[in-house]
Design a protein around this nucleic acid. Sequence first.
DNA 1: GTCTATAATTAGATAGAC
DNA 2: GTCTATCTAATTATAGAC
Lengths: 194, 194
Amino acid sequence: MKIDRGGPAAAKSGKRERLVAAASRVLHEQGVEKTTLADIARVADVPVGNVYYYFKTKDQLVEAAIEAHAQGLRAVTAHLDQLPSPQERLKALLGGWTEQRELAARYGCPFGTLSSELGKRTDGLDHATAAVMRLLVDWVEQQFRTMGRDDPHDLAITLVATYQGISLLTNTFRDPELMTSQIHRLEEWIDSLA
Amino acid sequence: MKIDRGGPAAAKSGKRERLVAAASRVLHEQGVEKTTLADIARVADVPVGNVYYYFKTKDQLVEAAIEAHAQGLRAVTAHLDQLPSPQERLKALLGGWTEQRELAARYGCPFGTLSSELGKRTDGLDHATAAVMRLLVDWVEQQFRTMGRDDPHDLAITLVATYQGISLLTNTFRDPELMTSQIHRLEEWIDSLA
DNA sequence: GTCTATAATTAGATAGAC
DNA sequence: GTCTATCTAATTATAGAC
């Protein structure tokens, strides 16, 4: 059964999907405000003015990119849930972040920088990013709860905040090894909690 | 002796200073790309087109705001250096961040969000923010070195990254108490290192 | 030396052609 | 249903008035 994503007559051409994928990438590389619809349309190989056939406003395209992040996150956690122990699940999550360290060094965390920029707003997109961040924190919290900790929420905030902060410094100093060494500290911290 | 800040004939009117102060505030509240020169000029109470008398480009005004952050940071650390022990100095730094939690909840860390946005660039402003972040990391590192730790750099990165990450989550979730509770964890961590 | 009117560009958005 | 030519508004920047 085909999912209707609200776009006019969900075409087979896949242009809507290309636009969302392009938006996700370009918004990460350039930031929301710096990015123009022309930038996204070029990467998606869609005529500029044509974008408005699929999205009524630029913000709706940004919102679709945020929802794509949510979907990607759900896919990742569903995959990690196959692992036998919460410690292994958390470490696998950290391992994925370490693998992305070169991207983080160049452009920061794909979702964190988006959240940083949209966090200044009060127009709904700020809530949309918060909802995705909540997905991540809730999943991590569940792992700590399964480990028998009585302060799973605090621990989850600590883990996610640490990753976000490391991403910022890794990007600011253009040094991917900061991610490697600090994630390593997080791994040892997880072991110390077990 | 008067400091010449490079502006044309450093006027007594104080407009340049007002522009830099307004830029620092508005860039924090709105972000760099979203902010127009008109926004800054309005807050500084300076005619819009007049801005170009003091700064050749928008980027030069942003750079002046970054330098203002550097000056502010130097003033803060000089003040903290009056305290007798490195532990007290670090905790006083954390205390200052806790006091700013409402501002962080609304707009994020004044310098971190700037760094996040400029970190995507490669035009010099990215290096300017990195230099200011380096000032902070170096000062923190010196405190851990004075405490006799053999891994002062890693510890400094951990502390600054944790604060930056907490700031992001505090802003994303609009919850100042996240700052309070996580800074408390950092204080206990500092005690555990002594 | 100080400031303002205005140019040049580019953005997001739409009416309407195919 | 799909797409393009074009509009309006807003932005950075400058030429030149005071």
